[in-house]
Design a protein around this nucleic acid. Structure first.
Length: 280
DNA sequence: AAGATTACCTGAAGGC
DNA sequence: TGCCTTCAGGTAATCT
């Protein structure tokens, strides 16, 4: 389940392996993952070189550049990618495709496989390389949002803070795993309302979220269901997790039994001692 | 208008 | 063995 750290590592892999290479072909096994249509995506991208890879929250935006046109303007095409739950890239010359491989990119003879068991992920042509219209409603990236803006966007809200941290309109990048980890480190209960928190607590949530995201990036992400890096190696952040997936086990800090609760339809784990329940 | 729920998919896991 | 139900979770769409 890729969140910001996993997406960041995928982006780095694509950049490191493929930047400057020309896309010579695109085999489409299942066109449902491409927007607006497989024909249009292929037409826009084939023949162009991958110039840069950028990330916003959990979105990757690939900048493809073709030969200059008659006006000597660079000919760009931008592909926005969201892996959703199970999207994966493999850059392995001897990778064996199964029935879940939907796309095979050919970068100057190097095959790049896109696999997605649940077919939730999308690869979509967009016009704007910085902030495409399709994600105009998405908030600032979690790693770059400033404290004043953070307070402004979340400080007055009344919904459970866990639900708001998952809401990409407030800030982009956190998913279920890292929200639970961030709240644990910040010592804030998942059901607490931001409007009831102190300024210090709000600041702490942002600080800890950034900390856990940076740490996870440096560990190659978390393998919990089926995230692996582009070589097929699992991320190794999983053993660092403090609460996610550990309901019923003991808190690593205080030995209390971790509890599970559903917040906004999502499973959540917290420590009842380290993250005391707010008065409700 | 904000908050809550459901649809989209497939595979794993548990019950009987 | 095998059928059925539930769960997993990111986001868009739909409901209250």
């Amino acid at each position: 389940m890729p969140e910001l750290p996993e997406v960041e590592n995928v982006g780095r892999a694509l950049r490191d392996c493929l930047r400057g290479k020309r896309l010579d072909g695109l085999q489409v096994n299942y066109g449902g993952v491409l927007k607006p249509s497989p024909r249009q995506v292929r037409s826009a991208l084939v023949g162009k070189r991958l110039a840069e890879v950028n990330r916003h929250g959990k979105y990757l935006i690939l900048d493809f550049i073709g030969d200059p046109n008659e006006d000597r303007n660079e000919d760009h095409a931008y592909l926005m990618i969201h892996l959703r739950m199970t999207g994966q890239f493999f850059i392995l010359d001897d990778y064996i495709a199964d029935q879940h491989v939907h796309l095979i990119f050919d970068f100057e003879g190097r095959p790049v496989h896109y696999r997605d068991v649940r077919k939730f992920g999308r690869l979509e042509l967009v016009e704007d390389p910085i902030r495409p219209a399709a994600i105009a409603h998405v908030g600032p990236d979690m790693l770059s949002v400033r404290l004043p803006e953070w307070r402004e966007r979340i400080g007055h809200r009344k919904a459970p803070i866990k639900a708001l941290l998952l809401d990409q309109k407030i800030a982009a990048g956190l998913g279920n795993i890292y929200v639970d980890e961030s709240l644990f480190l910040a010592r804030v209960h998942p059901l607490a309302r931001p409007c009831d928190l102190t300024p210090t607590q709000l600041k702490e949530v942002l600080k800890r979220a950034r900390q856990v995201l940076r740490l996870a990036i440096n560990h190659g992400g978390t393998t919990f269901m089926n995230f692996t890096d582009f070589h097929g190696r699992p991320g190794n952040f999983r053993r660092k997790l403090r609460v996610y997936g550990r309901a019923g086990q003991k808190c690593r800090d205080c030995s209390a039994t971790l509890e599970g609760v559903r917040v906004g339809g999502r499973s959540s784990v917290f420590c009842p001692h380290c993250q005391p329940n707010p008065a409700r």
